[in-house]
């Protein structure tokens, strides 16, 4: 039981993620989370604005059920299967965090960005909005996110997914190394 409450090691987690992809393939579906954002748009009537959203969203209902499950899983894992401690990140990362004014004594997410009180700062809200816009726009432009490209696509040895994942890292590295010192 103690093992469940501790953070899970990477080799267990990675194996379980591959199993989730396998089960979805056996169900005749595919592992991809960002396509749900498109389904949200379709369900909200975005088909009137662009033919990109003129699809029958009922065929994607299964993935919305996966989303509901993921939310329930997040609730159970955070409330009943863990102690809410900060991940045991490396000492070097703690030094880097100090340089951008983020505390190393924190919860599962940085209080500086994800606490209710942080929302009183307009800068926090802007960071969250810009981050979300880039994620949603970029995922659809690239045709998938981490689950669709880095896991499903690369598992199928698809060149487009390799290009996309290289892009993910160029963007992520640029954000953390070049833009973070300017933002925080």
């Amino acid at each position: 039981m103690e093992l469940i409450f501790q953070p899970w090691p990477w080799y267990i987690s990675g194996f379980l993620i591959a199993c989730i992809m396998l089960v979805l393939l056996l169900m005749g579906k595919k592992f991809g989370m960002s396509s749900n954002l498109r389904t949200f748009c379709v369900a909200c009537g975005a088909g009137k604005a662009s033919s990109f959203f003129e699809v029958d969203w009922k065929s994607d209902k299964w993935n919305l059920l996966v989303v509901i499950g993921a939310m329930l899983g997040g609730f159970v894992a955070s409330h009943y299967l863990s102690n809410g401690e900060m991940p045991a990140i490396s000492e070097a990362t703690k030094v880097s965090l100090a340089n951008i004014n983020i505390a190393s004594e924190n919860g599962y997410l940085p209080q500086e960005l994800f606490s209710i009180s942080a929302l009183s700062d307009i800068k926090t809200i802007l960071i969250l909005i810009v981050g979300g816009l880039l994620i949603g726009f970029g995922a659809r432009y690239a045709g998938g996110c981490t689950s669709g490209h880095a896991i499903s696509g690369l598992s199928n040895l698809q060149l487009p997914s390799l290009i996309a994942v290289i892009g993910f890292f160029i963007g992520g590295l640029f954000m953390v190394h070049v833009l973070f010192p300017l933002i925080f």
């Binding site: 994620i135 726009f137 970029g138 640029f174």
Partner: peptide, 10 residues
């Protein structure tokens, strides 16, 4: 698209 997504991911 990948670069834009990566910026947001980070």
């Amino acid at each position: 698209g990948g670069i834009i997504f990566g910026l947001g991911w980070a």
